[in-house]
Design a protein around this nucleic acid. Structure first.
Lengths: 170, 170
DNA sequence: GACGTCATGTAATCAGTTACATGATTGA
DNA sequence: TCAATCATGTAACTGATTACATGACGTC
């Protein structure tokens, strides 16, 4: 078993939850429903599907028009997915440019710090707007993650507002 | 200018905010104060400092005992840092294993889903405990980011609790 | 002298992004 | 016929992790 399985798991999860799909379809789903959870472009997805097929986790169900290849999850793939979900302790490596800017904010003078915080706030606001427009509130896959994203966005906006108040008062 | 400056910026920020330091010192600071914002080990930091010195952003101030090299930020380094802070629009690429598990949770049956959520909750609780023990509440650098981290951890725990209630009711 | 911490580095590998490349189909 | 979208891929590069390697200094 590989060390970092996240991309495979995300792909297996989509195939399991939303049925057979092509690499192209999966890339679209990454762009839309998965974007606040994990990211991957088609250049990463296509080769990964080939490797996963070689490992027996997925199989090409059929080849449609325009060379479209429909992948299905195999029983081994389903097993791998379940094992990861129930047994893998998720790592908590954070790498956030926003948090980094917040971390370094005290290096700036008051006026500049306020301007940076306002931009950060606007970013969170935009993110919240995107999540609110997202379907999947009632949808099976992704509804819990969406709720978490919404709450974190709202919390972040509150934090930005209070930080701005603090900066303006000082 | 490079595309991804985050590691450089983090190093410049630490040198600017906490004064001259060795690669070893900087690696320690990454482990302690920066860990909830950005991650980097010494194997990434040492070569990066060499490149940054070549680019004139930092300079070796002195060489101490045991081959210890003390780096200082240069005026060009300070300029690069300020420019990034005030002008760079932070990217919002999220890659969270926890959120991925939450996303895929509906694939599991009720009992398993509850067990996974309990583990996720425990993870957030542990994270909160670490952040609460962290100094830097009053400290210059990192206090805003710490406050954001604390709020997000608390929000995540609330989300986990309500999700658990929801799962148990169903 | 042995152990732990301080202190620096390289090499191999893996994950992820950007740029490049090709061709089919659909609709204006 | 032209443009947009569908659909797949490769190659080069950058960022990050893991494993390996070395040696100095302090203290028990």
């Amino acid at each position: 078993m590989l060390a970092d399985m996240s991309l495979r798991i995300a792909l297996l999860g989509l195939l399991s939850g939303a049925g057979p799909a092509s690499g192209y379809d999966l890339a679209k789903k990454f762009e839309h429903s998965l974007n606040h959870v994990w990211q991957a472009g088609h250049t990463q997805i296509y080769p990964e599907l080939v490797k996963m097929a070689a490992d027996g986790l997925v199989a090409v169900e059929s080849e449609g028009a325009r060379g479209r290849k429909i992948y299905t999850i195999t029983p081994e793939g389903t097993h791998e997915l379940r094992t990861w979900l129930t047994e893998h302790q998720p790592s908590v490596t954070v790498r956030s440019e926003v948090a980094l800017q917040a971390f370094l904010l005290p290096l700036l003078d008051r006026k500049q710090a306020i301007a940076v915080m306002e931009r950060i706030r606007a970013g969170f606001e935009a993110r919240l707007a995107v999540l609110e427009c997202q379907p999947g509130h009632g949808q099976a896959l992704g509804r819990y993650a969406l709720e978490l994203g919404l709450r974190q966005a709202r919390t972040s906006i509150e934090w930005a507002d209070e930080t701005l108040t603090d900066l303006r008062r000082a």
